[in-house]
Design a protein around this nucleic acid. Structure first.
Lengths: 323, 323
DNA sequence: AACAGGAGGTTGAACGTTAAACTATGCCCA
DNA sequence: TGGGCATAGTTTAACGTTCAACCTCCTGTT
């Protein structure tokens, strides 16, 4: 592997000059610069990033810490973040914490060892500030840069849609209340439900996964007797519920309507296609990277919280009921 | 940030001794080692990975190069690879090439700059060996370590299941024939179809995505007149087909059966649940990482090709037809 | 004619780690 | 008694980059 010095020798200049040409850190005569570039070409010189990182005290890598890649909300996010990071010249190091706080903590510690410039983090555990700048996504915290969808509004939209469709009695499959996002969705929903006169007949807290609790499954099997609508804290839960309902012979939306949250790619392919709340994943990803890059320029300064709007996407899983 | 030397000073030893204690590269008296560990604790020392990588000529990072994270086959793979890598003490740097050869090439080049120890690579373009060891996954090449499912067998299983269910006329939605995996699936299917007397009435080549070509959509809308079964090169295609069939009012499996490939998490949630060929993603991921780690130990030596078996998972989207 | 100052380049050191070469001490055995 | 050798530790240098300080022309100004 050729180094700066090899390039320098071939181009007949000092190694610093090569560095300056490559980084544009100083004016260099075009003639000399050309010689340098030519030497870079012929030797197929490649920057040694660890050396650069050592000298600069930080690497040109961003960390991405996610709770669970198999949750279909995240691959799209990861892809968009990777794209934005690449455009800015950063590589991306991925940590999938598998929803485990210990794994998450070790991952962040590892990112610190790698001297990452910063990280984008969807926290599963408590927010403990790592020794590099982070932007929290989806689950934000006070005093730290963050990007999140308007969860409260999303909950409200679920309730409004339910009311607009004439529903009066609803069952709620809420997400883990340890998560800010799930809490806000629930609060938004309950607030608007109260205002509009939508009665929450039952509520079950379940994890963001396809595995529903036995109690939740029981509620769903008996759904006809109690409610005309089930609202879920995300699409994965909604799809799991749809499955239970199908097994129980409950027809959606004829007998009971269903509303999800996230608008994952499969929501539209479900049968019936899922009425849901769309989070603008791509915009969130781009905003998060932009915010992180800004913070790298300007380490000090007020924490910025970006809240992006969400929209309700009506599809086949909800239908109007008569009073 | 404290360094080895800070730790050394506090423990009253030389910095090399600290290094030896941390890496276990030399015997050190327990008493001294204890002092070192204590100093590490109180100073909250953290290894500087770039410095280590510079000195060693190689970082403790593995690359993962994927064509498209939003294809639901890959998140599970990425997660399992990340887990296996972490267990072996490696961090994971992700490159999502978005099915673009140029992006892929730049990504590999970047991994080289980062001095990664090796990479796991699902190639979208031609296989051009990078300057570090790689293990190809899913789409292998001669002369390089690789892990792939038995695509040919998978195609055969699709055909055998079709025959076992009494089908005689089939439409084939094959995948991009530029990809080895899609080619093999097709060949396996056609071979077994020929043997068993299964007539391929039509065939359309479509990308591994939810967007079907107009010709393919037309075939599906007219499916009743021509075939009793549609076979797809992967589950994403199958789900897209299912959607078109639903729109066209064709009932699955009553009027036409459908077979997919991959067994992605959503296959079981589709309506009807998708009969498909399961690839053991987790095993493949673990095999790939194990193979890569072995290659890092033993750089020379014959390339190893691991082929893992696949199984047909019968579900609701296929049903028996009378002769 | 002398000198300031900018442009273009070089020298040398430093980042934190590891590996090789070296030193000091103690012990065994001829 | 002294040579050989293992054990436990130290000294020193090196990895490839960047940054600050320095040097050398050259040009324009007075």
């Amino acid at each position: 592997m050729p180094t700066l010095r090899d390039v320098a020798k071939l181009a007949g200049v000092s190694h610093t000059t090569v560095s300056h040409v490559l980084n544009g850190t100083k004016r260099v005569r075009p003639e000399v610069a050309d010689r340098v570039w030519a030497a870079v070409e012929t030797l197929e010189y490649r920057l040694n990033r660890p050396a650069q990182a050592l000298r600069r005290g930080q690497s040109h890598i961003l960390g991405l810490v996610l709770p669970d890649l198999t949750n279909p909300f995240f691959p799209g996010l990861a892809q968009a973040i990777g794209l934005a990071a690449r455009k800015a010249g950063y590589a991306l190091t991925l940590v999938d914490s598998l929803e485990d706080k210990t794994v998450e903590e070790e991952g962040l510690s590892r990112l610190a060892e790698e001297q990452v410039a910063g990280a984008i983090w969807v926290p599963v555990g408590d927010y403990v500030p790592p020794p590099f700048p982070v932007v929290l996504v989806d689950r934000t915290a006070e005093g730290t840069d963050g990007v999140e969808a308007d969860h409260f509004l999303g909950g409200q939209l679920q309730a409004r849609h339910a009311l607009a469709m004439g529903h009066r009695r609803v069952g709620l499959l809420s997400g883990p209340q340890s998560l800010r996002s799930a809490r806000l969705r629930r609060e938004g929903f309950l607030a608007e439900a109260k205002v509009g006169g939508l009665e929450v007949v039952w509520e079950e807290e379940v994890p963001f996964s396809l595995e529903l609790s036995p109690k939740a499954r029981a509620r769903l099997r008996a759904v006809r007797e109690e409610v005309t609508l089930v609202v879920a804290a995300n699409d994965v839960i909604a799809l799991a519920a749809l499955e239970v309902l199908r097994e129980a012979g409950v027809r959606v939306p004829e007998e009971v309507s269903l509303i999800g949250y996230d608008d994952i790619p499969w929501a539209t392919l479900a049968h019936p296609p899922l009425t849901t709340v769309r989070q603008p994943v791509k915009e969130m990803a781009e905003a998060a990277v932009a915010l992180l890059l800004r913070r790298l320029q300007e380490p000090e300064g007020e924490a910025v919280q970006i809240v992006v709007p969400v929209t309700l996407v009506p599809r086949g899983s909800t239908r109007e009921v008569r009073r």
